[in-house]
Amino acid sequence: MLTLTCPYCGIAAEETELQPGGEAHLKRFGPGSSDAEFEAYLFARRNPKGVHFERWRHAYGCGKWFMAARDTATLQVYGTYKAQTPFPTPEIVAAIQHRHPQWRPDFDATSPTPTSAPEGLTQ
């Protein structure tokens, strides 16, 4: 069973109280983008075994979307954070590295918004 704490209302919500929203921190490619970028934005996902960032909605609760960092293989939850956060927070990164010392973020948290699609997903 997966239990995620909603960062908006503090409730430790059980998986069936939540609506899954897929991979988090996707950069939108809309009008003006190439077909390959648009296709990757719509369909290409990391689907990792291990550390993953996801969107969840507290559907049977406050109704807000939030982000969760968890391990898809062990279900260990590294933390949750608000949906208005452009990148996983330093606390989340620290929690992941506490468990996986070799893990390195593949995003540039100093950039104001995500600037590229996940590496390897665009052609």
């Binding site: 409730i11 059980e14 109280e17 609760g61 406050c62």
Partner: peptide, 16 residues
């Protein structure tokens, strides 16, 4: 699917 026994006396829990 909520631990209502642990809810504070003045708690309000939204769930299903």
């Amino acid at each position: 699917p909520a631990d209502l026994a642990a809810m504070p006396d003045d708690g309000l829990r939204r769930t299903r």
